[in-house]
Write a protein that binds this DNA or RNA. Sequence first.
RNA 1: GGUUCCGUGGCCGAGUGGCUAGGCAGAGCUCUGCAAAAGCUUCUACAGCAGUUCGAAUCUGCUCGGAACCUCCA
Length: 497
Amino acid sequence: MSSLKVHNSYSKKKEEFASIIPNHVGMYVCGPTVSGESHLGHARPFITFDVIYRYLKHLNYKVRYVRNITDAGHFEEEGRAAEDKISKKAVLEKLEPMELVQKYTNLFHWAMKQFNNLDPSIEPTATGHIVEQINMIEKIIADGYAYVVNGSVYFDVKKYAGKYPYGKLSGRVLDDLLETTRDLEGQDEKHNKQDFALWKAAPPEHIMRWKSPWGEGFPGWHIECSAMSTKYLGEQFDIHGGGMDLMFPHHESEIAQSTICNKHVPARYWLHNNMITINGRKMGKSYNNVIRLTELFSGNHELLTQAYSPMTIRFFILQTHYRSTLDFSNEALQAAEKGLKRLWEAYEELQKLEFDAYKERNEELEKTFYKLCGEFDEFMNDDFNTAKVLANMFTLVSNINSLKSGNLEKTTLSADCYAYVKKQFKAYVEDILGLQDENEDKRGRLNGVLDLLIDLRKEAKSKKDYVTSDKIRNQLNRLGILMKDEKDGNISYSFEK
RNA sequence: GGUUCCGUGGCCGAGUGGCUAGGCAGAGCUCUGCAAAAGCUUCUACAGCAGUUCGAAUCUGCUCGGAACCUCCA
């Protein structure tokens, strides 16, 4: 079997993966900013790295997966009037940052559950690690790579770049940045335009503030990740993940901060997922083209012709490689929805298939099964190519359906082969790709009712009482339950979305 | 303006030198009381131009088109 290779954004090459401590992996992924609702674009990294997390576990690594919650900064709820922040109002009338943060954190967790993402091992919050951040900043100041101006602290990028390869991750050249950086708030305080804030002094109306050696303020935008990843994963860890749009300045700054404090680039492998686009454009607040997850699940958005389930979205995302852009459209989502349904039904069918003693062995067919299932591992080892895994699965779907219908003889395969295919499918469909049955809740006691109706329909059919049999089928159909006559005389059913 | 990336059939997307994934849609056939489902078959593409090569979607150059980052951003 091949070994795991990952595309490292830091070296811009595909590299053999080797963990620092054998059998253990430390992985840090930039989490959500909980000042608003997550949208479709946000779903991508969390699903991507969930699959990576699952796959590493499948490879028997003990993984510590850390994903932060950014709940500190310049907070203001989307659309909420800025006056809320003025402190003269009564406590209950004021925007309470923690309330806002709680609301969106809960919503985020709800969405992650919907997607069947596993919980990270540790989900630290920025507000819970102010002390660690302050300590780190002090260290950077002591080392001479940061300076204090009016209660704010800035990182001295120019000095850093003199000694370390600043811009390596994002392919940035310091001199170019000098030319192009636009005017930003607090620019006049910085020694150089490319410097970034480690700590910002809080103006009086700012609602989030903490005491620090430099006065009341709040942490800069990048220091939380450096502080929390160091705390929970160590000075150097294996994988750092996030969206490509975070490479600069966020991850570049993280590297600079950690390099000064810990004398290391924090992570060995930097993995970045690409963006979800809509009409070829990145989905983002500034483009005014976001579809929130709640809207997606409910279909309640002008761009949506219908609702899409969390699993449909998960499948949609996994059908393309994580480093490619993925373009949203109703057509594409509908295709994913149908594809997933077909895959899932065949998967359930497979688990029900029983081994029949040989009549005549079909070696060609067995070889095909072994090959297609074996390649799942190869494809995942090649930088987590879920798209190829799914392609193979669909080829297998045809074969499974043929076995079911008798187009292919069940008696031509060995028990070993059945067992292997079942095992691989289960491992990949459920454990690694993290797909799950969306109709589970509808099943249960409904099953018994449907079995009864199936019996009645069979009876009617055997008496050629097609009026009754059609009535049962058609009525159920109207309720979104499809009855299907199988070749062998059995009747099966499936739920429409 | 700088840096980087991309342009694959009706749509979404794999794919890095020869063997032309896969899903969805369309067409035909088979099965079937009728349907549905499923199976089989079919439609077969690599923005354009030039070059390298026995051979290119895949390498090089140019042209056109699009995007991301350079600002919070998954």
